[in-house]
């Protein structure tokens, strides 16, 4: 372990990983309770389109991905409502379109040295100092907003009608949560990649749900599960010389299934 800690790449990866795990741990609680895990997977795949647009138009791909992911998130909601289709259909439409936009732009740009694999599978070891700062700021802002509206979000999660009747601006808060979700997803893409973002968005919340007594304790357990997954996953990947993204996802899976077995026995 000291050898791993001496590695400058591991140090940066740990810093970024801890920040992201706390952010997704919080978001994950709501994703699991509101049954939004497919929305999360849809948005993360859609972000690929945003990344490609950023590359093609020549501005920061992650920033482009955030903006695009927010638009898609809101698009998924409104299309589902207006088009009289269920949300999963709307997600299916949006995320395949976004992936197609991404692939079409890659063909057009005649330059494939876009970090395709980096975005698909994550590349936490190549993270830069600036990206860590950006992660810190976005995590802090998103966490602050969620905690500020915790009561309202809690009520909406358990009973949307009741929340509406008691004067909470449900639609506005729903959009706010979608924005927070999108931002968290794009930040996590750098860590575990588009394909494995679901692990950070779903598994910690699912683990927490097994033990939690209330919303607050669920958030705490979810963050802890995410944190342990990322830190242990990184060391695990160093020890066994495997890709860090996969190490993190597999560790979180082990934590979840171990919890499941323990819970059943207990």
């Amino acid at each position: 372990m000291p050898e791993a800690l001496a590695s400058p790449f591991m140090q940066k990866a740990l810093m970024a990983g801890v920040l992201v795990s706390l952010l997704t741990g919080l978001i994950s609680t709501f994703v699991v309770l509101r049954k939004m895990s497919f929305v999360g997977a849809g948005i993360s795949h859609a972000a690929f389109g945003g990344v490609a647009i950023g590359f093609y138009a020549g501005f920061n791909p992650l920033l482009a991905a955030v903006v695009y992911a927010v638009i898609v998130a809101i698009g998924i909601e409104t299309t589902a409502k207006r088009g009289r289709i269920s949300e999963d259909v709307s997600i299916g439409i949006f995320y395949s379109i976004s992936m197609a936009i991404g692939i079409a732009l890659v063909s057009l740009s005649q330059s494939y040295n876009i970090d395709l694999f980096g975005y698909l599978f994550g590349n936490i070891l190549a993270i830069t100092h600036d990206e860590i700062i950006l992660t810190l700021i976005t995590s802090a802002v998103v966490i602050a907003i969620i905690l500020f509206f915790l009561k309202e979000l809690f009520l909406i999660t358990y009973n949307e009608e009741l929340a509406r009747v008691s004067g909470i601006r449900v639609n506005l808060l729903n959009i706010l949560f979608l924005v927070a979700l999108s931002v968290s997803i794009v930040v996590s893409i750098r860590i575990v990649g588009i394909i494995m973002v679901s692990a950070l968005l779903v598994v910690p919340g699912a683990t927490a749900r097994l033990f939690a007594k209330g919303l607050r304790s669920m958030i705490a357990i979810s963050c802890a599960a995410g944190l342990v997954s990322v830190v242990a996953g990184l060391f695990f990947s160093y020890q066994y010389d495997i890709a860090p993204g996969a190490g993190i996802v597999l560790t979180s899976a082990v934590i979840f299934f171990t919890s499941l077995v323990l819970k059943k026995r207990g």
């Binding site: 791993a4 790449f9 990866a13 494939y112 160093y238 010389d241 890709a243 860090p244 993204g245």
Partner: peptide
Amino acid sequence: EPTARHIDRILREIRRLKIRVVFAETQ
């Protein structure tokens, strides 16, 4: 995707050889 251990090995080699440049490739 290169692993952390692998990158550390590369870094040690670069320092041992006192190389000032890392080659990437345009593709």
